[in-house]
């Protein structure tokens, strides 16, 4: 049986997920919560309101005065600041400012992230890697109630009509700096939260508390994948 402690890379949340009854699968060097014992029920729950730890999924960042030029040279479609754009391989390119890009993969496969890592070199660099894989944790809040629940923690109106799919808000959530990405999973509204990995246990606790009134659930990667269809 897969156990997260046997992996060299571990999410700060693995103990919390273990206590919630997680069953694990190997993802990108981590033991990641696949489900909590009821994969199909979790998919239904995720359509209403759920949170999941996506910290294991690949991500990367590049920052610097020459980021836009370099990243375009690499064949990446670069959106406007505070917008995300899906790339050919499925990676989401999230532009955080004129000079900073965050790359998020929704699957273990992350062709673009790997290719950029190989292409980048310190010599003559005009932008620099940001260690997003370790600096940040990544959670997702999914479901029809997700914007209502987030309103208990965040001062930006995240409802779909005001905050379109692939919009980004870099703001304060539960008094922490969080990148909120509107990233719907199939028909289900969803928000990815990318934030300081050392604060993962804290923010997870805030989310669990906030979603109680909506009977929200903790779900695994399988349920999120199922929503994407």
């Amino acid at each position: 049986m897969t156990r997260p402690e046997t992996f060299q890379r571990r999410s700060h949340l693995y103990r919390v997920c273990r206590e919630a009854g997680a069953r694990w699968r190997a993802v990108n060097g981590f033991g990641a919560p696949a489900h909590y014992g009821d994969a199909s029920g979790e998919a239904d729950a995720a359509a209403r309101l759920a949170i999941a730890d996506l910290t294991a999924l690949p991500r990367a960042g590049y920052k610097g005065w020459g980021m836009a030029d370099w990243i375009r040279d690499q064949g990446v479609f670069l959106p406007e600041p505070n917008q995300a754009q899906r790339q050919d391989d499925g990676t989401l390119a999230c532009r955080l400012s004129s000079g900073e890009l965050l790359l998020l993969a929704d699957d273990e496969e992350a062709t673009l992230i790997d290719r950029l890592a190989r292409a980048w070199s310190m010599d003559d660099a005009v932008c620099f890697p940001v260690p997003r894989a370790d600096a940040s944790a990544r959670l997702v809040v999914t479901g029809s109630e997700s914007a209502a629940m987030m309103a208990k923690m965040c001062g930006v109106d995240l409802r779909g009509r005001r905050f379109a799919d692939h919009a980004i808000a870099q703001t304060s959530v539960a008094r922490m700096n969080v990148i909120v990405l509107h990233n719907d999973r199939g028909a289900a509204p969803a928000y990815d939260l990318i934030f300081d990995s050392a604060s993962a246990v804290y923010l997870w606790g805030c989310l669990v508390d906030a979603m109680a009134e909506f009977s929200g659930s903790i779900v695994g990667l399988d349920a999120i994948d199922a929503l994407r269809g």
Partner: peptide, 14 residues
């Protein structure tokens, strides 16, 4: 309200 007091834990905390 609910008190939001951010806490950071190192990877070795536990």
């Amino acid at each position: 309200g609910r008190s939001f007091e951010p806490e950071r834990l190192t990877a070795m905390h536990w």
